[in-house]
């Protein structure tokens, strides 16, 4: 139950790390005047040909970029928003030619699907959900889960898109009696879904039946944890969490990610590994992304740090570039590249 049992990953010093494992392959300049907020990669099909495209989001503009030869990019579609700004891109795996965005000021007020008309290739946007939305995640098999409402009338809704991004089915999941903060898929178990809550619980649903299967209390050391990845092995559930609210601790530095193991039958759990900032690296976790066995995080210092979750330590640091701090980082879903963004609209693509 206690992080005292948690192994702290080896802490290499800043001096021993460099950007050697990161190779800059491309740069994309988004000239839209507003503040850049997110980036993602997805497959888009045009004239029967599927291409790995980049999606960039500024406060009021979302753009789709197609690859040209020699790592250049051409903007092919742009969606505009007038009243409510974009907060984040919500990629929906296994769907081609459709991406979702969450809009709002501090909290999400709308989720919209962005697509193109098959008739005249013009940009279209469809309002999928509005209200007081707390959390949203795109899931494999063309699904999107969201939670909305306040504690007493909280709704957890699962939408399933058709292959062409059209007609969708809706299903409701049993809400827990506490506010959901984030959702997380369980790798290889498409009927299982995890959620983290404001009461420091991890809940698990059966997506086929909508049942809430278990509520599992995790260590109170870190509040408001974000679930990034989970997998089940030998009857145990391994979960990678990040801790945006973790305070810096002198001895350990600031933990960015943590691996915990849960026995879903008994709800008993313990910390396995803390992934802390390298020694000498100031600041704490701001936001991050996990794919396969690598985790990337933007730190409050404006630097990006990368951890190999199997090796157990930080493998690369990417300091601010062009005198600009990094503000968001994503792993590309179409290849193994790292997409790093700055507020002014510069997106740098690195091979890791």
């Amino acid at each position: 139950h206690s992080t005292e049992q948690t192994k702290v990953a080896d802490l290499p010093t800043c001096d021993s790390l460099n950007t050697g494992s990161l190779q800059l392959v491309s740069k994309l300049k988004n000239p839209s005047g507003s503040c850049s907020v997110d980036v993602s990669a997805m497959w888009w099909e045009r004239a029967g040909f599927k291409e790995p495209c980049i999606i960039t989001a500024c406060e009021y503009v979302v753009s789709l970029w197609k690859p040209l030869d020699t790592w250049q990019w051409e903007k092919i579609y742009t969606w505009h928003f007038i009243e409510v700004p974009v907060l984040q891109i919500v990629p929906v795996p296994d769907v081609c030619n459709l991406v979702c965005v969450a809009l709002g000021s501090l909290e999400i007020r709308e989720i919209r699907a962005l697509l193109c008309s098959s008739d005249d290739e013009s940009e279209k946007q469809v309002l999928l959900k509005s209200g007081n939305i707390k959390a949203v995640l795109g899931l494999t098999k063309r699904r999107l889960v969201s939670s909305s409402g306040t504690l007493c009338d909280q709704q957890v809704e699962l939408m399933t898109f058709a292959e062409d991004g059209g007609n969708k089915e809706k299903q409701f999941l049993m809400p827990p009696e506490e506010t959901i903060l984030t959702f997380g898929e369980v790798q290889g178990m498409q009927d299982a879904l995890l959620g983290t809550t404001t009461m420091n619980n991890i809940v698990i649903w059966n997506l086929k039946t909508g049942q809430l299967l278990k509520k599992m209390h995790i260590d109170d050391s870190y509040q408001a944890s974000v679930c990034h990845k989970a997998y089940s092995e030998m009857g145990l559930l391994f979960v990678i969490l990040s801790h945006p609210c973790a305070k810096e601790r002198e001895a350990l530095g600031s933990p960015a990610f943590q691996l915990i193991v849960i026995n879903p039958k008994t709800a008993l759990n313990m910390g396995v590994m803390l992934y802390c900032l390298p020694q000498g690296q100031a600041g704490r976790f701001l936001e991050g992304d996990v794919r396969d066995h690598v985790a990337a995080a933007v730190l409050t210092s404006g630097t990006i740090a990368i951890w190999d979750l199997l090796l157990g330590h930080c493998t690369a640091l990417l300091p601010p570039t062009s005198d600009q701090n990094w503000s968001f980082v994503k792993w590309s879903g179409t290849d193994s590249h790292l997409l790093a963004g700055q507020k002014d609209g510069n997106i740098f693509i690195y091979r890791y």
Binding site: N206, M234, G235, V261, N263, P264, T266, L268
Partner: peptide, 22 residues
């Protein structure tokens, strides 16, 4: 130790789903 996590079941998802139906 993992023993502190109690009895483990490889079919935990199916078992929890059946228990939730009861």
């Amino acid at each position: 130790s993992l023993k502190d996590l109690g009895p483990i079941s490889l079919n935990w998802f199916e078992e929890l789903s059946s228990e939730a139906l009861l």
